[in-house]
Design a binder for these strands. Structure first.
Lengths: 225, 225
DNA sequence: ACCTGAACACCGTTCAAGT
DNA sequence: ACCTGAACACCGTTCAAGT
């Protein structure tokens, strides 16, 4: 065939097919050859649009980041920092749990992915505006990412095998009911996430309390990441 | 050569070589052929000792879990639940950050790995003993795992590229200093972990407060995972 | 510019053959 | 029981050749 008059591929088409493949069959199912076959072209064609396979996966990951709601961090938004952080975390987690197979790629950090950088920018900016010193704002962005990606990466409940015989009461005296975890996966993971998020925000709010008490009502503004 | 009088391989030797390879060159460097070469045997030899490559990686991961200190959860230990949880989280994270390349395997959950199951058993048992209802004890185990694995999986700081040009001030107005994050990786990730852990424990302690206030001093004991 | 087939250096795993 | 080489069906990526 060689070069067609109208390009067969585009970055968008490749990312779309790759996303579908990751979602349906997992990261392991994505090979350049398989992906190309799905698109009706030969393997090497992809290299006209992406430098390598990793670049394709990065684009897939960034499409997930783009789904994260950031409206709570806009200056015009009325939500306070705590509510904003909560709503953001919920939206962030929802985006990840909709595409759990992509989380390992996302967890590597924003890198050069624009949507991921926009997320980092928004949360850092909003925390500084709320009166957090920049170093603390950075920590908050980091610890929220730890918690959200950790919760989306591995379902806690599905991490336990659904096989009563796997939990010998002599070895694991408290895991007698562990084989039931997998059945109630969503309920358990959701509950743990909500409990943890609430605890995290309660703890941060207490810290913010002592901060404004010490620094007065004026919001200190310093630059820094 | 065929069968030697003394076996050339053992599960221990294979796991040791695989661990060294993962630590030094990453998960991607572990192929059955490469690992076998490192051990001075041919690729298929490994299949006399493990069913497949994944079983080898599981064993590598479990060796990391085995390094997590659990002494704070023993009945004879004097630490209260909050201190125990803190000390455990610190030890857990230390084990993971010593072997960051193994974290993606560990993050899949305990599965059938004995050391990982012992960890889950210990924390759940201790939380129930501390008066947490079983459902809450499960959630605590889950949310702590989210946070610790999340913090060990992807360094927050190293997730940002060390290249000032990557952060266009028009696109990311608050990331002007982001290129400096990578240099201070350890300080930032450690700070975020400590801040998050403290917030988490503060929040949980507040919840425990209202619990014992409502339920009285008697520790309710119900069974469940 | 954009696609192709051929080629290179790899994979994980199976299996019959050896001792 | 435990190791071997050969084989199968895959990989990611490069590259000259085509239009």
């Amino acid at each position: 065939m060689a070069r067609p008059r109208k390009p067969l591929l585009s970055r968008e088409r490749i990312v779309g097919a790759a996303s579908a493949l990751v979602d349906s069959e997992g990261l392991g199912a994505v090979s350049t050859r398989r992906l190309a076959a799905e698109l009706g072209v030969s393997g090497p064609s992809l290299y006209n649009h992406f430098r390598n396979k990793d670049e394709i996966l990065e684009a897939v990951a960034d499409a997930v980041s783009a789904k994260v709601d950031l409206s709570m961090f806009e200056e015009s938004d009325s939500r306070d920092w705590r509510t904003a952080l909560h709503d953001w975390a919920v939206s962030y987690r929802a985006a990840l749990t909709e595409h759990p197979n992509v989380v390992p790629v996302l967890a590597r950090g924003p890198g050069r992915r624009p949507a991921a950088l926009r997320v980092a920018d928004a949360v850092f900016g909003a925390m500084v505006r709320a009166g957090w010193p920049p170093a603390q704002a950075t920590r908050i962005g980091a610890l929220m990412r730890y918690f959200v990606t950790g919760s989306a990466l591995g379902s806690f409940a599905r991490g336990f095998v659904d096989d009563e015989a796997a939990y010998d009461p002599c070895d694991y005296p408290h895991l007698g009911q562990a084989h039931l975890l997998a059945e109630r996966q969503e309920e358990i993971d959701e509950g743990a996430f909500e409990t943890g998020l609430r605890a995290l925000l309660d703890g941060l709010a207490a810290q913010h309390e002592t901060l404004v008490r010490a620094g007065g009502p004026g919001h200190p503004r310093v630059d820094g990441p």
